[in-house]
Design a protein around this nucleic acid. Structure first.
Length: 427
RNA sequence: GGAGAGGUGGCUGAGUGGUCGAAAGCGAACGACUCGAAAUCGUUUAAUAGGUAACUAUUCGUGGGUUCGAAUCCCACCCUCUCCGCCA
């Protein structure tokens, strides 16, 4: 959520900044509403002030004369009644204004950082660096072909259980998934993160707090009988963990790592990535999340990104770092670095982690503050996948494939997986 | 699911119609004492919105209502706790 004061005082610069996202936002309309509200606010508070004084006077009058019904008192009460009707009229108008303003502002995305590259869509994202050797050989198998031949997962049977875009991991596939989760959690907790295992179902307020609602309700699964949704990312419960809190500044920065299943409807992606582990309605993810004071968030953004990178390096997976352009930024983010892993079968890099600095956007929506320099200040929040498990498995299968059809398990993972090769199991 | 209790500041907790934005304690900040610290003593310390400021308004779970006036009375909802039932 953007600061109302900022919108009121700098509508043009807000409008210009938001337009870098490639859409037109009508800020002046919101500004007009907030100005109207301000006028009414002043009107109401003067009336309330007078009515309050009157009430006190009545109280004094009554205690002096010990008479609740004297003509003087009744006269004053009549006057008080007039105030009340007047005030409630104004309040009615204020309420509708407030609602409109709130709706409008909640639908505005975060302002893109001045450092983010300007562009319209993902083709304008900027590659910052690459790591490792993105090898290209002919006759490479896709990860779903490898998975099928080694019996690591079964998507056909999964449609019986649920529907398409769900997967059942089997045998060594399930074991590898588990190994990856444990490996990542261990790496990050050794690196100073506190592990959390949050609920997978979250309420509407939590989704609003991190920016998924009201705009993106069609991207999450909703429970029909309750005000609960299947969490699309651990970012949601982690933000909500501290909602409406004043955090002791001594605890900052707070660094959480959380494993969670993630559920996404993937509406509008029909026909894309229909095979394999890349795009599923349910997937596992290890998420990194920071709360820090505003002056430290740029530095924190670099750190959270390099913490996510360290996993790719340990697993020896070639990747590149991409600076997301203004037109491709997520709703809550002001700046995002994506980590994209090399998938040799499709000869391209695919997103495996997205590390975002949301500044105070989510903290304002969720009211998460700290007393910094004697002032209550909204904290900055940062999130980054560290990493998406299914896509990591896809990358391991494709990058580790050998000419004899076997797959080399990265050395760092062997202690977690318990072996350096897959046993081909029969189902 | 049934019965009961309760939601008050950073935290604990008093307050049942009239200077109550709210006692007290804890915590925190500053000062004194000290070589320094602990202990002790003193002072200060809720948030939000508007305003350069003085100040004004709002906020005692949320939303309505009664009243000149509500933390306090009425209604609805949400949440938490205890007991019982069910259950991994």
């Amino acid at each position: 959520m953007l600061d109302q004061k900022l919108i009121r005082e700098n509508p043009t610069s807000v409008e210009e900044s938001l337009s870098l996202r490639g859409k037109v936002f009508n800020i002046s309309q919101i500004q007009e509403l907030t100005l109207q509200k301000k006028e009414i606010d002043i009107e109401i508070s003067t009336l309330q002030s007078e009515s309050k004084k009157l009430s006190k006077l009545i109280g004094q009058e009554i205690s002096k004369s010990k008479n609740y019904d004297s003509p003087e008192v009744n006269n004053l009460k009549k006057k008080g009644n007039e105030y009340r009707t007047k005030i409630s009229e104004f309040e009615e108008r204020k309420r509708t204004l407030d609602q409109n303003i709130h709706n409008e502002i909640c639908n505005l995305p975060n302002l893109p950082s001045k450092d983010a590259p300007i562009g319209k869509n993902e083709s304008h994202n900027v590659q910052v660096k690459t790591w490792g050797d993105p090898f290209v050989t002919e006759n490479l198998k896709s990860h779903w072909e490898i998975g099928e031949s080694l019996n690591l997962f079964d998507s056909v049977k999964s449609t019986k259980i649920s529907k398409s875009r769900f997967i059942t991991l089997t045998g060594d596939g399930a074991r590898l998934e588990r190994a990856l989760i444990n490996f990542m959690l261990d790496m990050h907790t050794k690196n100073g993160y506190l592990e959390l295992m949050p609920p997978a179902l979250v309420n509407s307020e939590s989704l609003r707090g991190s920016g998924q609602l009201p705009k993106f309700s069609n991207e999450s699964f909703k429970c029909s009988d309750d005000d609960l949704w299947l969490s699309p990312t651990a970012e949601v419960p982690l933000t909500a963990f501290h909602r409406n809190e004043l955090i002791d500044p001594k605890l900052l920065p707070i660094k959480y790592v959380a494993y969670s299943p993630c559920f996404r409807r993937e509406a509008g992606s029909y026909g894309r990535d229909t095979k394999g582990l890349i795009r599923l309605h349910q997937f596992n993810k290890v998420e990194l999340y920071w709360f820090c004071e505003p002056s430290k968030s740029l530095e924190a953004h670099k750190k959270i990104t390099s913490d996510a990178e360290s996993i790719l390096k340990k697993l020896n997976l070639p990747y590149r770092l991409v600076d997301i352009c203004t037109g491709d930024l997520g709703f809550s983010s002001s700046r995002t670095f994506d980590l994209e892993v090399w998938l040799p079968s499709s000869k391209c890099y695919r997103e495996i982690s997205s590390c975002s600095n949301c500044l105070d956007f989510q903290a304002r929506r969720s009211s998460i503050r700290s007393k910094i320099d004697k002032k209550n200040t909204y904290l900055h929040t940062l999130n980054g996948s560290g990493l998406a498990i299914g896509r990591t498995m896809a990358a391991i299968l494709e990058n580790g494939q050998q000419t004899d059809g076997s797959v080399k398990i990265p050395d760092a993972l062997v202690p977690y997986f318990g072996s350096n090769f897959f046993k081909n199991c029969l189902i």
